[in-house]
Amino acid sequence: MPLWSLWWAWMAGALLLAILEVVAPAQIFLGFAAGAAGTGLLLLFGLPGLAGSLPATILVFAVLSLIAWLITRRIAGVREGQVKLFNHDVNDN
């Protein structure tokens, strides 16, 4: 059985991506971690046709990652009027 069709491999990847998000906070790895975890759960509970098809598995991962990233961006992203403006140079006295 190929590695990409094993649920625990997707969960391990999700854990690694979540750790990477803590090390390098950018809110992008969190979406990928959630997508990998969702894909792992779908493989665990046996979504028909997912385990046997690499393109379908990658598509599910991409869609779940995009949805998770959009939700994360909506919750923790830059809000309207929250733009940081610099009126002076830090080297000016």
Rank of each mutant, 00 (worst) to 15 (best):
P2F: 07
W4C: 04
S5P: 08
S5V: 02
L6Q: 11
L6V: 14
A12G: 03
A12K: 00
L16C: 10
L20I: 07
L20K: 09
E21G: 04
V22W: 15
A26T: 13
I28A: 12
F32S: 06
A33Y: 08
A36K: 06
A36C: 08
A37N: 06
G38I: 02
L41H: 07
L42C: 13
L42E: 13
L43E: 03
L44F: 12
L44W: 12
F45E: 05
F45L: 12
A51T: 02
G52S: 11
L54P: 07
L54W: 13
P55M: 00
P55A: 03
P55G: 00
A56N: 14
I58P: 07
I58K: 08
L59W: 01
V60K: 09
V60N: 04
V60S: 08
F61P: 00
F61D: 06
A62G: 10
V63P: 01
L64Q: 03
L64D: 06
S65R: 09
I67N: 08
W69L: 14
L70R: 04
T72I: 06
T72L: 09
R74I: 07
R74V: 02
I75D: 04
I75E: 03
G77Q: 01
G77S: 04
V78C: 02
R79Y: 02
E80D: 08
G81R: 00
Q82D: 12
L85Q: 12
N91H: 11
N91S: 12
N91T: 14
N93R: 11
